[in-house]
Protein backbone atom coordinates (compact mmCIF):
# COMPACT_ATOMS: atom_id res chain seq x y z
CA UNK A 1 0.00 0.00 0.00
CA UNK A 2 1.26 3.43 -0.86
CA UNK A 3 -0.01 4.82 2.40
CA UNK A 4 3.21 6.46 3.54
CA UNK A 5 2.47 9.80 1.97
CA UNK A 6 -1.09 10.09 3.27
CA UNK A 7 -1.92 12.13 6.30
CA UNK A 8 -1.90 9.98 9.42
CA UNK A 9 -5.33 8.40 9.66
CA UNK A 10 -6.48 5.35 11.50
CA UNK A 11 -6.44 2.19 9.34
CA UNK A 12 -10.18 1.77 9.81
CA UNK A 13 -10.92 5.29 8.59
CA UNK A 14 -8.62 4.70 5.62
CA UNK A 15 -10.35 1.42 4.73
CA UNK A 16 -13.72 3.16 4.89
CA UNK A 17 -12.41 5.90 2.64
CA UNK A 18 -11.24 3.29 0.09
CA UNK A 19 -14.63 1.57 0.17
CA UNK A 20 -16.47 4.86 -0.29
CA UNK A 21 -14.12 5.84 -3.09
CA UNK A 22 -14.66 2.49 -4.81
CA UNK A 23 -18.44 2.82 -4.57
CA UNK A 24 -18.30 6.35 -5.93
CA UNK A 25 -16.10 5.23 -8.79
CA UNK A 26 -18.47 2.37 -9.70
CA UNK A 27 -21.48 4.70 -9.59
CA UNK A 28 -19.67 7.31 -11.69
CA UNK A 29 -18.52 4.74 -14.24
CA UNK A 30 -22.05 3.34 -14.36
CA UNK A 31 -23.49 6.79 -15.04
CA UNK A 32 -20.89 7.46 -17.73
CA UNK A 33 -21.77 4.20 -19.46
CA UNK A 34 -25.48 5.03 -19.33
CA UNK A 35 -25.08 8.54 -20.72
CA UNK A 36 -22.29 8.09 -23.26
CA UNK A 37 -22.98 4.60 -24.64
CA UNK A 38 -26.77 4.17 -24.62
CA UNK A 39 -26.50 1.83 -27.63
CA UNK A 40 -23.99 -0.52 -26.02
CA UNK A 41 -25.86 -1.26 -22.81
CA UNK A 42 -26.15 -4.94 -23.72
CA UNK A 43 -22.38 -5.23 -23.97
CA UNK A 44 -21.89 -3.21 -20.79
CA UNK A 45 -24.31 -5.46 -18.90
CA UNK A 46 -22.23 -8.46 -20.01
CA UNK A 47 -19.19 -6.64 -18.63
CA UNK A 48 -21.02 -6.18 -15.31
CA UNK A 49 -21.91 -9.89 -15.11
CA UNK A 50 -18.29 -10.77 -15.87
CA UNK A 51 -17.14 -8.28 -13.23
CA UNK A 52 -19.10 -10.24 -10.64
CA UNK A 53 -17.39 -13.44 -11.82
CA UNK A 54 -13.94 -11.86 -11.63
CA UNK A 55 -14.64 -10.38 -8.17
CA UNK A 56 -15.69 -13.82 -7.02
CA UNK A 57 -12.53 -15.34 -8.49
CA UNK A 58 -10.50 -12.69 -6.67
CA UNK A 59 -11.89 -13.96 -3.36
CA UNK A 60 -10.35 -17.42 -3.81
CA UNK A 61 -7.36 -16.62 -6.02
CA UNK A 62 -6.36 -13.19 -4.80
CA UNK A 63 -7.26 -13.49 -1.13
CA UNK A 64 -6.78 -17.23 -0.51
CA UNK A 65 -4.06 -18.05 -3.05
CA UNK A 66 -6.05 -20.84 -4.73
CA UNK A 67 -5.23 -20.76 -8.45
CA UNK A 68 -8.20 -22.02 -10.44
CA UNK A 69 -8.98 -22.33 -14.13
CA UNK A 70 -12.47 -23.63 -13.43
CA UNK A 71 -14.30 -20.73 -11.87
CA UNK A 72 -16.90 -20.46 -14.60
CA UNK A 73 -18.52 -23.59 -13.10
CA UNK A 74 -19.80 -21.34 -10.32
CA UNK A 75 -21.02 -18.67 -12.75
CA UNK A 76 -22.72 -21.34 -14.84
CA UNK A 77 -24.21 -22.94 -11.72
CA UNK A 78 -25.95 -19.68 -10.91
CA UNK A 79 -26.95 -19.00 -14.50
CA UNK A 80 -28.51 -22.44 -14.95
CA UNK A 81 -30.21 -22.39 -11.52
CA UNK A 82 -31.88 -19.12 -12.34
CA UNK A 83 -32.53 -20.02 -15.97
CA UNK A 84 -34.11 -23.39 -15.19
CA UNK A 85 -36.31 -21.87 -12.50
CA UNK A 86 -37.57 -19.36 -15.05
CA UNK A 87 -37.90 -21.72 -18.01
CA UNK A 88 -39.24 -24.81 -16.22
CA UNK A 89 -40.66 -23.32 -13.01
CA UNK A 90 -42.35 -20.41 -14.71
CA UNK A 91 -40.97 -17.91 -12.19
CA UNK A 92 -40.84 -14.37 -13.55
CA UNK A 93 -39.84 -12.14 -10.66
CA UNK A 94 -36.27 -11.04 -11.51
CA UNK A 95 -35.30 -10.70 -7.83
CA UNK A 96 -36.36 -14.29 -7.14
CA UNK A 97 -34.34 -15.40 -10.15
CA UNK A 98 -31.30 -13.55 -8.84
CA UNK A 99 -31.73 -15.22 -5.46
CA UNK A 100 -31.93 -18.59 -7.20
CA UNK A 101 -28.69 -17.80 -8.99
CA UNK A 102 -27.07 -16.87 -5.70
CA UNK A 103 -28.19 -20.14 -4.13
CA UNK A 104 -27.15 -22.18 -7.16
CA UNK A 105 -23.73 -20.57 -7.17
CA UNK A 106 -23.35 -21.12 -3.44
CA UNK A 107 -24.02 -24.85 -3.76
CA UNK A 108 -21.75 -25.20 -6.82
CA UNK A 109 -19.07 -23.26 -4.98
CA UNK A 110 -19.19 -25.48 -1.90
CA UNK A 111 -19.11 -28.67 -3.99
CA UNK A 112 -16.29 -27.57 -6.27
CA UNK A 113 -14.40 -26.15 -3.30
CA UNK A 114 -14.55 -29.53 -1.59
CA UNK A 115 -13.10 -31.16 -4.73
CA UNK A 116 -10.51 -28.54 -5.68
CA UNK A 117 -9.13 -28.05 -2.17
CA UNK A 118 -8.09 -31.70 -1.95
CA UNK A 119 -4.83 -30.87 -3.72
CA UNK A 120 -2.40 -27.97 -3.95
CA UNK A 121 -0.28 -26.48 -6.71
CA UNK A 122 -0.50 -27.91 -10.21
CA UNK A 123 -2.82 -30.81 -9.32
CA UNK A 124 -5.17 -28.21 -7.81
CA UNK A 125 -5.19 -26.26 -11.06
CA UNK A 126 -5.93 -29.45 -12.97
CA UNK A 127 -8.73 -30.43 -10.56
CA UNK A 128 -10.31 -27.03 -11.13
CA UNK A 129 -10.16 -27.60 -14.90
CA UNK A 130 -11.68 -31.05 -14.43
CA UNK A 131 -14.55 -29.57 -12.38
CA UNK A 132 -15.55 -27.05 -15.03
CA UNK A 133 -15.20 -29.57 -17.88
CA UNK A 134 -17.27 -32.09 -15.94
CA UNK A 135 -19.97 -29.50 -15.29
CA UNK A 136 -19.98 -28.51 -18.94
CA UNK A 137 -20.23 -32.14 -20.15
CA UNK A 138 -23.10 -32.74 -17.69
CA UNK A 139 -24.96 -29.64 -18.84
CA UNK A 140 -24.56 -30.83 -22.41
CA UNK A 141 -25.80 -34.34 -21.57
CA UNK A 142 -28.83 -33.24 -19.54
CA UNK A 143 -30.22 -31.36 -22.51
CA UNK A 144 -33.79 -32.00 -21.40
CA UNK A 145 -33.18 -29.65 -18.49
CA UNK A 146 -30.49 -27.34 -19.80
CA UNK A 147 -31.21 -27.14 -23.51
CA UNK A 148 -27.81 -28.69 -24.19
CA UNK A 149 -25.75 -27.10 -26.92
CA UNK A 150 -28.75 -25.11 -28.20
CA UNK A 151 -28.78 -23.19 -24.94
CA UNK A 152 -31.60 -22.70 -22.47
CA UNK A 153 -34.17 -20.24 -23.74
CA UNK A 154 -37.63 -19.25 -22.61
CA UNK A 155 -36.43 -17.06 -19.76
CA UNK A 156 -38.77 -14.07 -19.73
CA UNK A 157 -38.44 -12.13 -16.49
CA UNK A 158 -41.27 -9.82 -15.56
CA UNK A 159 -40.74 -6.12 -14.80
CA UNK A 160 -38.42 -5.27 -11.92
CA UNK A 161 -40.43 -4.28 -8.80
CA UNK A 162 -43.48 -4.73 -11.05
CA UNK A 163 -42.65 -1.44 -12.81
CA UNK A 164 -39.46 -1.45 -14.87
CA UNK A 165 -39.63 -3.85 -17.81
CA UNK A 166 -36.55 -5.44 -19.41
CA UNK A 167 -36.82 -3.75 -22.79
CA UNK A 168 -34.79 -3.92 -25.97
CA UNK A 169 -32.49 -1.07 -24.93
CA UNK A 170 -31.44 -2.92 -21.82
CA UNK A 171 -31.59 0.08 -19.50
CA UNK A 172 -33.30 -1.84 -16.72
CA UNK A 173 -30.85 -4.72 -16.97
CA UNK A 174 -27.90 -2.36 -16.99
CA UNK A 175 -29.07 -0.39 -13.97
CA UNK A 176 -29.87 -3.61 -12.14
CA UNK A 177 -26.33 -4.76 -12.87
CA UNK A 178 -24.79 -1.54 -11.59
CA UNK A 179 -26.88 -1.69 -8.42
CA UNK A 180 -25.90 -5.31 -7.90
CA UNK A 181 -22.24 -4.49 -8.35
CA UNK A 182 -22.48 -1.65 -5.80
CA UNK A 183 -24.08 -3.92 -3.21
CA UNK A 184 -21.62 -6.76 -3.85
CA UNK A 185 -18.61 -4.46 -3.76
CA UNK A 186 -19.65 -2.99 -0.42
CA UNK A 187 -20.32 -6.44 1.02
CA UNK A 188 -17.04 -7.88 -0.22
CA UNK A 189 -15.03 -4.94 1.11
CA UNK A 190 -16.55 -5.65 4.52
CA UNK A 191 -15.79 -9.34 4.05
CA UNK A 192 -12.13 -9.00 3.13
CA UNK A 193 -11.55 -6.50 5.94
CA UNK A 194 -13.25 -8.74 8.50
CA UNK A 195 -11.29 -11.12 10.78
CA UNK A 196 -12.38 -13.92 8.42
CA UNK A 197 -10.90 -12.07 5.46
CA UNK A 198 -7.71 -11.55 7.43
CA UNK A 199 -7.57 -15.27 8.19
CA UNK A 200 -7.87 -16.05 4.48
CA UNK A 201 -5.06 -13.66 3.62
CA UNK A 202 -2.97 -15.32 6.31
CA UNK A 203 -3.63 -18.70 4.70
CA UNK A 204 -2.42 -17.33 1.38
CA UNK A 205 0.77 -15.98 2.94
CA UNK A 206 1.74 -18.98 5.02
CA UNK A 207 -0.64 -21.88 5.35
CA UNK A 208 1.57 -23.86 7.76
CA UNK A 209 1.96 -21.02 10.21
CA UNK A 210 -1.76 -20.21 10.21
CA UNK A 211 -2.48 -23.88 10.84
CA UNK A 212 0.01 -23.89 13.69
CA UNK A 213 -1.73 -20.87 15.20
CA UNK A 214 -4.78 -23.06 15.59
CA UNK A 215 -6.91 -21.85 12.70
CA UNK A 216 -8.89 -24.42 10.76
CA UNK A 217 -7.64 -23.89 7.24
CA UNK A 218 -9.83 -26.12 5.10
CA UNK A 219 -13.20 -25.08 6.54
CA UNK A 220 -12.22 -21.44 6.08
CA UNK A 221 -11.26 -22.03 2.45
CA UNK A 222 -14.41 -24.03 1.72
CA UNK A 223 -16.51 -21.27 3.31
CA UNK A 224 -14.76 -18.71 1.13
CA UNK A 225 -15.45 -20.91 -1.89
CA UNK A 226 -19.13 -20.92 -0.96
CA UNK A 227 -19.23 -17.12 -0.68
CA UNK A 228 -17.32 -16.83 -3.92
CA UNK A 229 -19.83 -19.17 -5.54
CA UNK A 230 -22.72 -17.00 -4.36
CA UNK A 231 -21.14 -13.92 -5.97
CA UNK A 232 -20.34 -15.74 -9.21
CA UNK A 233 -23.85 -17.20 -9.20
CA UNK A 234 -25.30 -13.70 -8.94
CA UNK A 235 -23.27 -12.79 -12.02
CA UNK A 236 -24.61 -15.83 -13.84
CA UNK A 237 -28.17 -14.99 -12.85
CA UNK A 238 -27.71 -11.39 -13.97
CA UNK A 239 -26.56 -12.67 -17.34
CA UNK A 240 -29.50 -15.10 -17.56
CA UNK A 241 -32.08 -12.48 -16.58
CA UNK A 242 -30.79 -9.74 -18.86
CA UNK A 243 -30.02 -11.83 -21.96
CA UNK A 244 -32.86 -14.34 -21.61
CA UNK A 245 -30.65 -17.30 -22.57
CA UNK A 246 -28.10 -19.50 -20.85
CA UNK A 247 -25.59 -21.26 -23.07
CA UNK A 248 -22.92 -23.88 -22.46
CA UNK A 249 -20.32 -21.13 -22.78
CA UNK A 250 -21.43 -19.84 -19.36
CA UNK A 251 -19.58 -22.75 -17.73
CA UNK A 252 -16.79 -23.24 -20.23
CA UNK A 253 -13.08 -23.52 -19.65
CA UNK A 254 -12.62 -20.51 -21.91
CA UNK A 255 -14.72 -18.32 -19.63
CA UNK A 256 -12.77 -19.55 -16.61
CA UNK A 257 -9.46 -18.83 -18.28
CA UNK A 258 -10.51 -15.38 -19.44
CA UNK A 259 -11.76 -14.54 -15.92
CA UNK A 260 -8.34 -15.48 -14.53
CA UNK A 261 -6.65 -13.44 -17.24
CA UNK A 262 -8.75 -10.38 -16.39
CA UNK A 263 -8.07 -10.80 -12.68
CA UNK A 264 -4.30 -11.06 -13.05
CA UNK A 265 -4.40 -8.30 -15.63
CA UNK A 266 -6.05 -5.96 -13.13
CA UNK A 267 -4.16 -7.24 -10.10
CA UNK A 268 -5.16 -10.20 -7.96
CA UNK A 269 -5.76 -9.57 -4.28
CA UNK A 270 -7.47 -6.22 -4.77
CA UNK A 271 -11.19 -5.82 -5.44
CA UNK A 272 -10.56 -2.59 -7.34
CA UNK A 273 -7.92 -4.33 -9.42
CA UNK A 274 -10.38 -7.08 -10.34
CA UNK A 275 -12.93 -4.50 -11.51
CA UNK A 276 -10.45 -2.38 -13.44
CA UNK A 277 -8.97 -5.48 -15.07
CA UNK A 278 -12.38 -6.69 -16.18
CA UNK A 279 -13.51 -3.39 -17.61
CA UNK A 280 -10.25 -2.47 -19.35
CA UNK A 281 -9.71 -5.96 -20.78
CA UNK A 282 -13.25 -6.36 -22.09
CA UNK A 283 -13.44 -2.88 -23.54
CA UNK A 284 -10.02 -3.36 -25.17
CA UNK A 285 -11.10 -6.72 -26.58
CA UNK A 286 -14.43 -5.30 -27.79
CA UNK A 287 -12.83 -2.31 -29.48
CA UNK A 288 -9.90 -4.19 -31.02
CA UNK A 289 -11.98 -7.08 -32.34
CA UNK A 290 -14.39 -4.64 -33.96
CA UNK A 291 -11.57 -2.58 -35.45
CA UNK A 292 -9.41 -5.45 -36.68
CA UNK A 293 -10.98 -8.90 -36.75
CA UNK A 294 -7.79 -10.49 -38.09
CA UNK A 295 -5.22 -9.39 -35.56
CA UNK A 296 -7.21 -8.73 -32.41
CA UNK A 297 -6.20 -11.97 -30.71
CA UNK A 298 -2.54 -11.22 -31.42
CA UNK A 299 -2.95 -7.77 -29.89
CA UNK A 300 -4.71 -9.17 -26.81
CA UNK A 301 -1.84 -11.65 -26.43
CA UNK A 302 0.79 -8.93 -26.73
CA UNK A 303 -1.10 -6.84 -24.17
CA UNK A 304 -1.00 -9.73 -21.67
CA UNK A 305 2.72 -10.29 -22.27
CA UNK A 306 3.38 -6.59 -21.77
CA UNK A 307 1.50 -6.58 -18.47
CA UNK A 308 3.57 -9.50 -17.14
CA UNK A 309 6.80 -7.81 -18.19
CA UNK A 310 6.10 -4.26 -17.08
CA UNK A 311 3.31 -4.47 -14.49
CA UNK A 312 3.70 -7.85 -12.81
CA UNK A 313 1.24 -6.80 -10.11
CA UNK A 314 -1.42 -5.80 -12.60
CA UNK A 315 -3.05 -2.54 -13.62
CA UNK A 316 -3.88 -1.64 -10.02
CA UNK A 317 -0.14 -1.03 -9.49
CA UNK A 318 -0.01 1.45 -12.37
CA UNK A 319 -0.60 4.65 -10.33
CA UNK A 320 2.11 3.71 -7.83
CA UNK A 321 4.44 2.76 -10.70
CA UNK A 322 3.86 6.08 -12.45
CA UNK A 323 4.29 8.01 -9.21
CA UNK A 324 7.56 6.14 -8.68
CA UNK A 325 8.76 7.09 -12.16
CA UNK A 326 7.86 10.74 -11.64
CA UNK A 327 9.61 10.80 -8.28
CA UNK A 328 12.73 9.21 -9.76
CA UNK A 329 12.71 11.81 -12.53
CA UNK A 330 12.26 14.59 -10.04
CA UNK A 331 14.74 13.39 -7.43
CA UNK A 332 18.01 14.09 -9.31
CA UNK A 333 16.78 17.52 -10.30
CA UNK A 334 16.25 18.42 -6.67
CA UNK A 335 19.17 16.58 -5.17
CA UNK A 336 21.71 16.95 -8.02
CA UNK A 337 24.62 19.43 -8.22
Amino acid sequence: MAATKMAPRSPIARDRLVTAGGLAAIAAAGAIGLVLFPNDLGFLTRVLATALLVLSLDLVTGYCGVATLGHAALFGGGAYASGMLAAHGGIQDPLVLLAAGLAGGLVTGLVSGLVILRATGLPQLVLSIAVVQLASALANKLSGWTGGSDGLSGISPGPLFGRFAFDLWGQTGYLLGVALLLVVFAALRALVLSPFGLLCRGIREDVIRVGALGARVRPALVAMYGISGAVAGLGGALSAVTTGVVGLDSLSFERSASALVMLVFGGAGSLGGALVGTVVFQVFEHAVSAANPFHWLTLVGLLLIAVVLFLPRGLQALPARLAGLVRRRAAPARGGA
Partner: peptide, 15 residues
Amino acid sequence: PQVLLTIGITFAIIG
Protein backbone atom coordinates in the same frame (compact mmCIF):
# COMPACT_ATOMS: atom_id res chain seq x y z
CA PRO B 1 2.26 -14.38 -13.98
CA GLN B 2 3.27 -17.63 -15.67
CA VAL B 3 -0.32 -18.37 -16.56
CA LEU B 4 -0.88 -14.84 -17.88
CA LEU B 5 2.38 -14.76 -19.87
CA THR B 6 1.91 -18.15 -21.49
CA ILE B 7 -1.76 -17.51 -22.30
CA GLY B 8 -0.65 -14.24 -23.86
CA ILE B 9 1.94 -16.06 -25.98
CA THR B 10 -0.72 -18.62 -26.98
CA PHE B 11 -3.18 -15.89 -28.04
CA ALA B 12 -0.49 -14.14 -30.07
CA ILE B 13 0.53 -17.37 -31.83
CA ILE B 14 -3.11 -18.25 -32.58
CA GLY B 15 -3.70 -14.80 -34.02
